[in-house]
């Protein structure tokens, strides 16, 4: 007899499990889920909140106003509006993808939809990091071209400018590196099982 058929014989015979009562089931219904999807949702909400707060903390509007340059203030306002639009679009797409996660779909599709939802958040994070890099570079250029204090400093001595440039560059690299590492670790741990099983499923159909 085939091994699995031998197992099947026993499998059918041995179905005596401890019976879970209706009362116990009722209690379970009101317990909180600890599924990966729930966790991804919580982390994603925290991430959006985090980047939103960062945006508020590094409010450069005051600085621009102080420089008294109306073009800069306009530029900054357009920039802010675009940023809010992107956040709105992102939240919409995330919500749509999240709602598409359906536990009744096939295992492969379920995994795909979870990965897609997760990717939406990743794009948002890369967008934010990109914006920070662009913002820093723009801010740097603007500051040395328009801030009278800085211009005075660099008037006779170029080294101040180069030192500031190096510090700026190193900070960007370190910051992006740290974020990259953090996400690699976080999602490496969180999604390891999911990716492993997803690849296993994909391999079957190769």
């Amino acid at each position: 007899m085939e091994e699995l058929d031998l197992l099947k014989k026993d499998w059918k015979k041995n179905q005596n499990f401890r019976e879970v009562s209706e009362k116990e089931i009722y209690t379970m219904l009101h317990k909180k889920s600890s599924s990966i999807v729930k966790l991804i949702l919580i982390i994603s909400v925290l991430e959006v909140a985090f980047w939103f707060l960062i945006g508020f903390l590094f409010d450069s509007e005051q600085y621009f106003k102080k420089l008294n340059n109306p073009y800069l203030v306009d530029f900054f306002n357009v920039f802010t509006i675009i940023n809010y639009l992107v956040i709105a679009v992102f939240i919409y797409i995330f919500y749509k993808n999240y709602k598409n996660i359906c536990v009744v779909s096939s295992t492969k599709n379920l995994m795909k939809s979870i990965i897609k939802t997760r990717k939406t958040v990743n794009y948002y994070i890369w967008y934010n990091l990109g914006m920070i890099i662009i913002g820093t570079i723009l801010g740097f250029a603007l500051a040395f071209n328009t801030d009278p204090n800085l211009m005075k400093l660099t008037e006779h001595n170029d080294s101040v400018f180069y030192i500031a440039l190096i510090i700026c560059f190193v900070s960007i690299v370190v910051m992006v590196g740290l974020f990259w590492l953090f996400y690699k670790l976080l999602y490496g741990i969180l999604l390891k099982k999911l990716f492993k099983n997803y690849n296993e499923l994909k391999k079957i159909d190769l």
């Binding site: 699995l4 295992t107 099982k193 492993k196 499923l201 079957i204």
Partner: peptide, 28 residues
């Protein structure tokens, strides 16, 4: 076995046919 292989074994033990096994997992 890994999680996917266990799923196949489980459905086999439960007498599911290959159409249902394939559909459930999303493979051919």
């Amino acid at each position: 076995l890994n999680d996917i292989e266990k799923a196949l074994v489980f459905m086999y033990l439960e007498d599911k046919d290959y159409t249902e096994i394939a559909e459930t997992l999303g493979i051919s």
